[in-house]
Deep mutational scan, measured.
Amino acid sequence: TEEYEYTDEQQAREAAREWREKGYTVTIEEHNGRWRVKTG
């Protein structure tokens, strides 16, 4: 599992979409105004 943090929701969603296209399972969670994208 890798985790990436973004301050911008749009960036987080874009990144998540790219990971999904590569076949990863992706979770996005908002935490204190930051967006965490977890792949695994």
Rank of each mutant, 00 (worst) to 15 (best):
V37H: 01
Y4C: 11
T25I: 13
Y4M: 09
E5N: 07
N32F: 06
A16Y: 07
G23E: 02
W19A: 05
E3S: 12
D8M: 05
R20H: 08
E18D: 09
W35C: 01
A15Q: 07
E29W: 13
K38I: 15
R17L: 08
A12H: 00
R17T: 07
Y4E: 07
E21Y: 05
R34I: 14
D8V: 05
R36L: 15
G40S: 15
G40L: 15
R17F: 06
Q11A: 14
E18V: 13
A12E: 00
R34H: 08
K22I: 04
R20F: 09
T25G: 05
D8I: 05
G23N: 03
D8E: 07
E5R: 05
A16G: 05
A15E: 04
R34V: 13
R36S: 08
E2A: 14
A16P: 00
I28Y: 03
G40I: 15
E29V: 11
H31P: 00
W19P: 01
Q11V: 09
G40M: 15
R13C: 08
A16K: 02
E3T: 14
E14A: 13
Y6C: 04
K22E: 04
R17P: 00
Y4G: 05
G40W: 15
T1P: 13
E18P: 03
Y6G: 02
T1N: 12
G33Q: 04
I28N: 01
W35V: 01
Q10K: 12
E9I: 10
E3L: 12
T7R: 08
G33E: 03
V26P: 03
A12I: 01
E14S: 10
Q11Y: 05
W19Q: 03
T7V: 12
K38S: 09
Y4K: 07
R13F: 10
E5Y: 15
V26E: 01
V26C: 08
E5K: 04
H31S: 10
K38Y: 10
E29F: 12
V37D: 00
G33P: 00
R13L: 14
E2P: 09
R34S: 08
V37S: 00
R34D: 02
R20N: 06
E30R: 08
E2H: 15
E18G: 09
E3M: 14
E29N: 06
R17Y: 06
T27V: 12
Y6F: 14
R13S: 06
A15V: 09
H31L: 12
E9V: 08
T1A: 12
Q11G: 07
E5Q: 07
E30L: 13
I28L: 09
A16L: 06
Q10A: 13
Y24I: 06
E21G: 06
E3I: 15
T39R: 15
R36E: 03
V37K: 00
R13I: 14
R13M: 13
T27H: 09
E9K: 05
K22V: 03
T7D: 15
W19D: 01
A12V: 03
E9Y: 13
G40H: 15
Y6A: 02
G23I: 01
K22W: 05
A12Y: 01
E30K: 10
A15F: 07
R13E: 10
K22R: 11
A12N: 00
A12K: 00
Y4I: 08
E21L: 10
R36D: 02
T1C: 12
A15W: 04
T25M: 11
E30S: 08
W19F: 12
G23S: 02
E2L: 14
E9D: 03
E14P: 00
R34P: 00
T25Y: 13
Y6D: 01
K38A: 07
R17W: 06
V26G: 01
G23T: 01
T27W: 11
N32H: 07
T7K: 09
R34W: 06
G33K: 04
E21K: 11
W19E: 02
Y6E: 01
E3H: 10
A16F: 07
G23Y: 02
E3F: 15
T7H: 10
A15M: 08
D8T: 14
A12L: 02
R13A: 08
E21I: 07
Y6K: 01
R36G: 03
T7P: 13
E29P: 00
W19G: 02
G40D: 13
W19S: 02
R34A: 08
A16H: 03
Y4Q: 07
V26R: 01
R20I: 13
Y4L: 08
E21Q: 09
N32R: 05
E29K: 06
G23Q: 02
E30Y: 15
E5W: 15
T7E: 15
R20D: 04
T7L: 13
A16I: 04
T7A: 14
V37L: 09
Y24E: 03
E30P: 07
E2N: 14
T7S: 13
G23A: 02
V37E: 00
V26S: 03
E21S: 09
R34Q: 07
H31K: 11
E2Q: 15
A12W: 01
T25V: 12
E3W: 15
K38H: 08
H31D: 10
Y6V: 02
T27K: 07
A12S: 02
Y24P: 00
R20S: 09
V37I: 11
Q11K: 10
T27L: 08
E5S: 08
W35P: 00
H31R: 11
W35I: 01
N32Y: 06
E5M: 10
Y6N: 01
E30N: 09
E18S: 12
Y24H: 05
E30D: 06
R13H: 10
N32Q: 07
A16R: 02
T1V: 14
N32V: 03
T27M: 08
A12R: 00
Q10Y: 12
G23M: 02
W35A: 00
T39P: 09
W19M: 08
G33I: 01
T1Q: 13
E18R: 14
R20A: 12
R17D: 08
Y24T: 03
E9S: 04
T7Q: 12
R20Y: 08
G33V: 01
Q11D: 11
K38Q: 08
E2F: 15
V37Y: 02
T1K: 10
A15C: 10
E18Y: 15
E30C: 07
G33W: 02
Y24G: 03
Y4D: 05
R36A: 06
R36V: 15
G33H: 11
T7Y: 12
T27S: 10
W35K: 00
Q10N: 12
G40F: 15
T39Q: 06
E29Y: 14
K22N: 05
E9M: 07
T25R: 09
R36T: 14
T39F: 15
V37N: 01
D8Q: 05
E18A: 13
Y24L: 07
G33Y: 02
G40N: 14
V37R: 00
T27C: 09
R20P: 00
T39W: 15
E21T: 07
Y4V: 08
Q11M: 11
K38M: 09
E21M: 09
E5A: 06
T1S: 12
K38R: 13
K22T: 03
Y6S: 02
Q10I: 11
G40V: 15
E21N: 10
H31G: 05
N32G: 09
T7I: 11
V37M: 04
Q11L: 11
K22L: 10
R36Y: 15
R17S: 08
T25S: 11
E3V: 15
Q11F: 06
E21W: 04
D8P: 01
T1R: 11
A16E: 04
G23W: 02
D8N: 12
T1M: 13
R34K: 14
E5I: 13
Y6M: 03
E9W: 10
E30W: 14
K22Q: 09
T39N: 05
Y4T: 07
V37G: 00
N32M: 07
A16M: 08
R20V: 11
R34E: 04
T1W: 15
W19V: 02
G33T: 02
D8A: 04
R17K: 11
E18N: 11
R17M: 09
E5H: 08
E3R: 07
K22A: 08
E3C: 10
D8S: 13
W35R: 00
A12Q: 00
V26I: 05
Y24C: 05
A15P: 00
W19K: 03
E2I: 14
H31M: 10
V26K: 01
G40Q: 15
R20W: 09
E29H: 08
E18F: 15
D8C: 07
